[in-house]
């Protein structure tokens, strides 16, 4: 598949060059599994190792999946998907059904997440196909009584800044995953580690 692509200056095409050369829809649909693997990895990592995740820029953030999780087989196969709803803060044992679904080769296709860093916290839903954060409950630094003083533009700037902070964190998390996924470490260390956690949940 990688053969025949032409780059600009060197042999390796840039991301933009690839997007110009490839049929976007085909590329997107052919790699939908990446979103599912990312969500599944993130969920297992945060369940197994705790909520703290280190981003490539060195910052640490807290990430956890809230009470809703959907697992399905291959991309787009919603017929045999499993939707799991737990209490607001899932406790030990609440995800047993989800672990069973994983054993049936299902992967996470949708989840409600929370991300926290310092005083900022966001809640949103992510679907594997686009990883577009939906219905973001934004964290704004101003107290509600101060928002009048900010004015319309100030309020928008604050919301924009909060959105940017979240998108940077999500991109950072995806970067950790994708770099691991294309490295030999994935098969050598990461998969056995995740498998070890799953075995411990039996």
């Amino acid at each position: 598949m990688a053969k025949g692509r032409k780059g600009g200056k060197g042999d390796i095409p840039t991301a933009i060059e690839i997007l110009e050369q490839e049929d976007f829809f085909e590329l997107w649909q052919g790699k939908l599994f990446l979103g599912q693997e990312f969500l599944t990895w993130l969920w297992l990592r945060t369940e197994g190792d705790g909520r703290t995740m280190r981003l490539p820029n060195g910052h640490e953030v807290e990430v956890w999946f809230e009470n809703q999780l959907q697992l399905s087989l291959g991309s787009g196969q919603t017929k045999r998907s499993v939707s799991i709803t737990t209490t607001e803060e899932p406790a030990d044992g609440d995800w047993m059904e989800a672990y069973t679904a994983l054993a049936q080769h299902k992967k996470v296709s949708k989840g409600t997440l929370r991300v926290r860093t310092g005083p900022s916290e966001w809640r949103f839903t992510l679907s594997h196909d686009t990883l577009i954060p939906q219905g973001i409950r934004l964290s704004t630094k101003s107290a509600p009584e101060d928002t009048e003083e900010l004015g319309k533009e100030g309020r928008v700037l604050e919301r924009l800044s909060s959105t940017a902070e979240l998108l940077n964190i999500l991109e950072g998390l995806f970067k950790v995953f994708i770099r691991l996924r294309v490295s030999p470490e994935w098969d050598k260390k990461e998969l056995p580690r995740l498998q070890g956690f799953l075995d411990s949940q039996k």
């Binding site: 693997e37 291959g74 069973t100 994983l102 054993a103 299902k106 996924r181 994935w186 998969l191 498998q195």
Partner: peptide
């Protein structure tokens, strides 16, 4: 696609 989570 990889074999993520085939254990359980």
């Amino acid at each position: 696609p990889g074999p993520l989570g085939i254990g359980g």
